[in-house]
Design a protein around this nucleic acid. Sequence first.
RNA 1: GCGGAUGUGGUGGAAUUGGUAGACACGCUAGACUUAGGAUCUAGUGCCGCGAGGUGUGAGAGUUCGAGUCUCUCCAUCCGUACCA
Length: 982
Amino acid sequence: MDYNFQEIESKWRKHWFEHKTFTAFNGSSKPKFYVLDMFPYPSGAGLHVGHPLGYIASDIFARYRRLKGFNVLHPMGYDSFGLPAEQYAIQTGQHPAHTTKENIARYRDQLDQLGFSFDWDREVRTSSPEYYKWTQLIFIKLFDSWYNQYSDQAEPIQTLIEHFERSGNLKIKAYTEYNEHFTAEEWMQKDEKEQEDILQEFRLTYLADSWVNWCPALGTVLANDEVINGKSERGGHPVVQKKMRQWSMRIKAYSERLLDGLEKLDWTDSIKDQQRNWIGKSLGSSVVFEVENSDKKIEVFTTRPDTIFGVSFMVLAPEHPFVNGESEITTEEFKEKVKDYQKNAALKSERDRQSEVKNISGQFTGAYAIHPFSGKKIPVWIGDYVLASYGTGAVMAVPCGDQRDYDFAKHFNLPIPNIFKDIDISEKAYDEKSGIIANSDFLNDLSVKEANKKTIEEIEKKNIGKGKTNYRLRDAVFSRQRYWGEPFPVYYKNGIPKMIAKEYLPIILPEVEKYLPTEDGDPPLGNAQIWAWDAKQNAIVDIEQIDNETVFPLELNTMPGWAGSSFYFARYTDPNNEEEIAGEDALNYWGNVDLYIGGSEHATGHLLYARFWTKFLKDRGVLTYDEPFQKMINQGMILGRSSMILRLTIIINCSDDPDFKETVSNYYLSKNLFYRLVKEKDRISQLILENLKIEYPQLKSFDIMCIDSRHIDISLVNNDNLNVAELKNKLAEFKSAIFILEEDGTFICDNEVEKMSKSKFNVQTPDDLVKKYGADTLRMYEMFLGPLEQSKPWDTKGISGVHNFLKKLWRLIHDENNNFSVSDEKPTKEALKSLHKTIKKLQDDLERFSFNTGVSAFMICVNELQDLKCNNREIIEPLIVLLSSYAPHFSEEIWEKLGHDAGTISYTTFPEFDEKYLVEDNHDYPVSFNGKMRMKVSLPLGLNAEEIQQKVLEMEETKKWLEGQTPKKVIVVPGKIINFVL
RNA sequence: GCGGAUGUGGUGGAAUUGGUAGACACGCUAGACUUAGGAUCUAGUGCCGCGAGGUGUGAGAGUUCGAGUCUCUCCAUCCGUACCA
């Protein structure tokens, strides 16, 4: 073999490792550049070919920036807390720390194989105590903060307490949903518990009974983004609503800043829009409706105050306080019916409610509200299309202007007053925000926009509401009933949560016997024996010692997966700092991430939470920037090609009794036979019969009942051809299976393109390909596959093309005996042109992250050099430097052979592009007549438009095409095109 | 429903500011070398046509001397999200 990639690659991997070639130093006269990948969760399946896609891209870019003279930070780590390790632990009893360690080792091996230029000295693991110490510290800081809306930032809770002590909460403008007022005296009279209850309304993390997505199968609570279509993201188990005491993050306080911050980020519109929608800002107004014969007032939020005269009924969420418990407004007559309705609604999980979008349900409460302007009586209903968790949990229904209200009104025969001038609402609601308002007292003849403004003015004048902004974003539940996560630095003194002081962090995850919840339904940490806090000794002690005097119970929940990943980017900049998350110098030097590469699936999870924490940490002086990721590229998913075999379920009859039937389901039909099953039924049936007869000689009749498909391991399949013998050998269940083959003796599988997953047996690991073609080939091939941001099915068909390119280049600079050989002669003009064209193309491609066309540029260049038989040092050397970001091992090898110090190619400089080599004496102008290209003329460069026109008009060929006509106009773009308009 | 994308040969995909559509690669066809080829090299390869030529970027219109690219309408596929008042 002439290009011995295996030898070359292991040589350079070793060299880089031993020489720490890619260590990044804090502080340098060079400009900085921070390239970051979303760190992986180290799953048991190892890396598949989709994982490295983004890493390869970021590595190419990091190496490119190094050549361009930047001090590059390019770290890697592991998001190593998570559910799979825990579930594995539940099944096998293996400690998650153990499996996590093993998985990380495997990941590291696989990553190393690919020649990444990570600075491994900066590795972080979210599950290591040295790291989660900081996660715990941030939690404490959040607890110790409130959001001051005057300064528009988070501030220490102490300042709020001082304020309460001085003047109560009357003059404060804080982010909270607490709406009672107290004076300084009243504050001082409250006991510790009462004070803490109030403070919890302000703290940025707080305990609350909240409706949570409870997953009975996993025995845990899930965040909204961990629930997909009413099922858990992991495992797909059903999720129901449950009220639990949970830690929550007051992310809502940051709604506006999270929205604003998007403006200055260089992210795709798609992700920005997803975040905008998630935050869901809407402008409108609150309006208070009095209730007849009651002192209760129903507050609603509406984005359409202009439609206030179209209100014909009101709807409360079934969970609304006014239809529950003491403050109930339901009349005696309807109490029973309302209770029934609520019971039914509560039984429905979120999923059921969703799937019943079209089903309209509701119940009249017997109560009436009073319209604030017309004074009319408005019936109050409850209905589950109104959500308790959005707005005030109550709506003023305007059936003529909102389709849902319209449907509700039609269904329950409620009036639908029309308040739009010249609009027909007999079929459906008119929900456009335009038109003229009618039948609306003081709003008549106003446009929607004017009426909106006018109504808010009137509402505010009457003091029954005010202009208001509402956000869809909800506070993030932060507790998980799991073992394998960060423990909270929290203990409970008589039910009051207390933070453990910074000096005693980290609070290390205790050992447990079982990873399942306890019998009482406590989280797994409830199984820990050594899990109580001695507040005097400041130490974790045995739970037996709990006396609630000096020894207290510790929090049993752990933190969610997104905790550790919300600040890791900052930790990389100063990973060994034991005093702070990162020192000021490191923060100031590296700043935020310049380029972040990862999947778009984290749009409303990780990417939102990381932004939230960053803004918070900036407020509290921990970080120096308020957006973590300046530019982001979202790589597409690499899909797998699954192979499936088609299974027949056949009913057979082997006796004379027609009712004596048996079912067999171990017959498999080759794909092409299956597709011919309809057309050539008899022939295929005959084939099946022949096979059946072998096993059932007594067979009288048979009938195919159904056909289904089963995933099988793609390693047993080659070009859709199943290796039947190996399958039978490997899996016992197929030992006695019958495979009905094609005429040529093969068994063809069906296939489908879908997400790679262990359960579909379609995972392609990079290992085999690295073995067969080398890491450089795989790196280039993954880039060559197509635009980085596009999802695409994995397909190895084209890999030989990329491999050939490297072989070709190798041969170009080696003689027949595989000895390195370059010419020291001056290169030809053509060769220089080819080189400089490539430099320019490559640089442009890299700057716009077009990695696939970059690979093509190399191929074109090498093809040209091969045609020119050019192996001049002056061409090869810069070309190798260009190539070093894509194919680092190959390039290092040649670089050394060219006489440079080993391992120095990464820190040489990117070749300078010189336009002079591209300048041609002549340019082939396409000449078109009326826009149609007819001929090409070669003209010297440097002529102006007029001269070009003159020259072309004089040509015989031109005259032929003009056929004696005089052109109306001649368009000449020097260096580009000549067009005659006839 | 709403939001975002994407539609180009047999296939993956190029075409950066409107200026020679299909670069590059796979595949395929033919040939050379070879004991052999899943090695290497040469030529060809959008479609129709012997050819001149015609035609061609999901469909239809428009702007322009000129449109894959800009505008409008529609269709298809994928992703995200969903009773948000």
